[in-house]
Design a protein around this nucleic acid. Structure first.
Length: 281
DNA sequence: AAGCTCCACAACCGCCTGTAC
DNA sequence: TGTACAGGCGGTTGTGGAGCT
């Protein structure tokens, strides 16, 4: 189809912004607010592309931006979010007030990648660089109700080759279908479907990469799934129930446990991943 | 001091999506 | 229903500064 350029490139400045351009942009947005970036440059007296103005404002001039170095907590949060979301920088930025997607993306590429490599962790997969066998690939597709924040459609997949599939179970309760496919003791796939929710929020389907933590504490209950009053801890979801990692018995119906902090930054402690808050910016 | 390399980050580019008409 | 446009996103590039030889 082809698209017309967003502006007359021949008559626009490129490259670094000058102080005067910054001042003009700030003054205009303070007076008129954000929006209509295409017409903004002309109205503000700037020889810039509208997209360039938007980026300059969002990434550098916005008053609520937190300048300065990333803290250690922010580092760890970015790593955890990236392990879940991948290169969804805007979503990651949504969880870090005052930080922009561009800033986090740059920081990831320049600092955190190296940091993870130094730890022996592949920044792309969040798994040990040297150990690429015997670790189940974990993917999760989760749809969460926008009405009450309860997980009504959740798919957690711990993948193995299809030929290893040896057993399947299916439970239907209150129109919620729960499919459990056992590949082996170490691999299982759990699907929780809710047709009602599919209709309500068909677009809330984020493909997430959830990797098992390298070191989980004894009482960590990551992603406890409410299935008719019972919960499945992260260890059990990996097929290592009855192990010392299992926390099923130590958590209550609300998925809480005495020392359950892993993944709490996403609300996963309660088995609820609130994507609405991830989307908010 | 000059030249070179590496690094950090701002900015750009192309593509995708949502929406108005 | 198709088209054009605006906004947004992620990947990539350009550039200035720091460090090293």
């Amino acid at each position: 189809m082809g698209r017309s350029p967003c502006c007359e490139k021949a008559h626009t400045n490129k490259g670094a912004w000058t102080k005067e351009e910054d001042d003009r942009l700030i003054t205009y947005i303070r007076a008129h607010g954000e929006g209509c970036w295409r017409s903004l440059p002309k109205a503000a007296g700037l020889l810039r592309c509208g997209k360039s103005c938007r980026l300059r404002w969002i990434n550098y001039l916005r008053p609520d931006l937190k300048r300065g170095n990333f803290t250690e907590d922010e580092d760890e949060l970015i790593i955890k979010l990236h392990s879940l979301l991948g290169n969804k920088w805007s979503l990651i930025a949504g969880r870090l007030p005052g930080r922009t997607d561009n800033e986090i993306k740059n920081y990831w590429n320049t600092h955190i990648r190296r940091k993870l490599l130094n730890r022996g962790i592949d920044p792309a997969t969040h798994r040990p660089v040297t150990d690429n066998t015997n670790i189940p690939t974990t993917t999760a597709t989760t749809t969460v109700s926008a009405a009450n924040s309860s997980p009504e459609t959740t798919t957690i997949s711990f993948s193995t080759p299809p030929h290893n599939l040896i057993k399947s179970e299916e439970l239907i309760e209150n129109d919620i279908k729960i499919s459990i496919h056992h590949n082996s003791l170490d691999h299982r796939k759990i699907k929780i479907h809710s047709p009602e929710n599919q209709e309500r929020c068909p677009d809330l389907n984020l493909e997430l990469q959830i990797g098992p933590p390298l070191h989980h504490h004894k009482n960590d209950s990551v992603s406890s799934y409410m299935t008719g009053g019972s919960t499945i801890c992260f260890a059990c979801s990996l097929g290592v129930q009855n192990s010392k990692e299992c926390s099923c018995t130590s958590i209550g119906l609300n998925g809480t446990s005495g020392n359950s902090t892993a993944y709490d930054f996403l609300g996963l402690k309660n088995g609820v991943l609130d994507y609405r808050s991830l989307e908010m910016k």
